[in-house]
Write a protein that binds this DNA or RNA. Structure first.
Lengths: 202, 202
DNA sequence: TAAATTAGCGAACAGTTGTAAGCTCAAAGT
DNA sequence: ACTTTGAGCTTACAACTGTTCGCTAATTTA
């Protein structure tokens, strides 16, 4: 096994160790370099051969999480083309992601409002990708300005994202209810956005 | 000065010390008992005369934050009665709260998805109060079922709450833009919720 | 083949943490 | 007036943290 290959291998071991230690009770901020190194099977000092900081590791984790989020979008797009309803498939796909990769989602959720400005910015970027793509989709389906589409998409993403947060603590049955409720909320939003401009009743 | 009076005084000193140490860079989880005690002007061990745990202190902080939130609601209600527009006054009042008591808001925001189930539950309760009250208000203005009003209120609170999170990192000008955008989002939501049932176009 | 590079290790250090034990001394209770 | 209570203190300890230094041993390069 080549040297670079081996290095990459333990690098991944560190990343995996960090991800596996994240949980409902343990945030990234509460991970210690030594604990991570222990689980990765290396000496504490060897950590520095791969990351200069825990922060650098953290940003790497956020990047990986963002990658998963983008894969999720691709999956959702496929489902939409085979199924039809944009809103319900999007929400359902997202909720599946949350329950299946809860620790990854927790990372994004927490660092979104965490103590590191760099982390917050990194997560915000990932979410904006998500939102921009949804806005593009909305634009094709509805006739509206770019700003309107983006604004609507932002609201939808916010709603879905933070309902996902509630789903983390909820049992599966309540989780399904959350999904149904969110779908209805998004439908209201879409309906309102479409008709609010056209007929200024208010 | 009576003894009980003095005790209450240092208890408040502890609480104030904790609040004052919270910031964009420091979450409650990263506070240490010793640091808090130092700022409160007492020995580390004296802390235990008032709280058995840092957790107990934390729950107290969340309660106080919830109190402020309720005062906020009362203030918003007054403004609405003198002004009229429920949505814009609510959003504006909330955004003022966020910028003026940013550390209090940050506490709620972070512990909402923090590592302690008790904290999460406590914050969720406070937010539910908020949402229930708004639902009551909506019910009086619009004719709709209790469930619909609650669902709409939940969506609104989620949107406002997490736009407040964005406002924390935004300069004042961008903050005003966020406010305008949120108001529009809520109007769409209200409009959609009102008309979605009545005319099943979708 | 000889030299250079480097992932990983062990030992050690200075700093911080939460918390236990026991003391003082002023207020409250009798 | 005497006793009890309890807030606050000092001292102490064991556990952990991040990080520096110098070494080994294996791979890569020349």
């Amino acid at each position: 096994m080549s040297r670079a290959e081996q290095k990459e291998r333990t690098r991944q071991a560190i990343i995996n160790a960090a991800f596996s230690q994240l949980s409902a009770e343990k945030s990234f901020a509460s991970l210690s370099l030594r604990e991570v190194a222990r689980e990765a099977g290396i000496a504490p000092t060897s950590f520095y051969r791969h990351f200069s900081d825990m922060d650098e590791l953290g940003l790497t984790l956020v990047d990986e999480a963002g990658l998963m989020l983008r894969q999720l979008m691709r999956q959702a797009r496929l489902r939409i083309e085979n199924n039809g309803s944009v809103i319900s498939t999007s929400v359902e796909t997202f909720m599946e992601f949350v329950t299946e990769n809860s620790n990854v989602f927790r990372l994004l959720l927490r660092e979104r409002s965490g103590t590191s400005a760099a982390f917050r910015a990194a997560v915000a970027r990932e979410i904006q990708h998500f939102s921009a793509e949804l806005a593009h989709y909305l634009r094709k389906q509805t006739e509206c300005t770019v700003e309107q589409a983006q604004l609507q998409a932002d609201a939808m993403v916010t709603l879905v994202f933070h309902t996902g947060a509630d789903a983390l603590d909820a049992p599966t049955e309540q989780c399904r209810q959350l999904t149904r409720r969110t779908i209805l909320q998004l439908r209201w939003l879409a309906h309102g956005a479409a008709s609010y401009g056209r007929k200024p009743t208010d």
